[in-house]
């Protein structure tokens, strides 16, 4: 079973890399970009076949390692 975890910075946490990307887009002539936030995607290949069990395990993985919940939110998707 394949799964995907999206990790993004929480609202209110300043994202210097996002700001730099926004600035670079502006210098390429892409006007009207009001905000850019950079995150990461983690794709997993799981042996588990039960969707709800997989989701529970993924949540545990996010809490314990994949995300830093002080500054990051995560979104789990079982594909």
């Amino acid at each position: 079973m394949k799964a995907r975890v999206d990790i993004t910075l929480k609202n209110g946490v300043l994202d210097p890399q996002g700001k730099a990307i926004q600035h670079a887009l502006g210098s390429l002539g892409f006007d009207g970009v009001d905000g850019v936030r950079q995150g990461k995607v983690i794709e997993l290949d799981l042996a588990e076949t039960d969707k709800s069990k997989a989701e529970a395990t993924l949540k545990d993985m996010c809490e314990k390692l994949l995300a830093n919940t002080v500054i990051e939110d995560y979104k789990i998707e079982v594909l």
Binding site: V13, L14, P16, Q17, A20, N68, V70, I71
Partner: peptide, 11 residues
Amino acid sequence: LPGALMRNAGL
């Protein structure tokens, strides 16, 4: 320890 350490503001 509490808090977080992020990318330097000046990148």
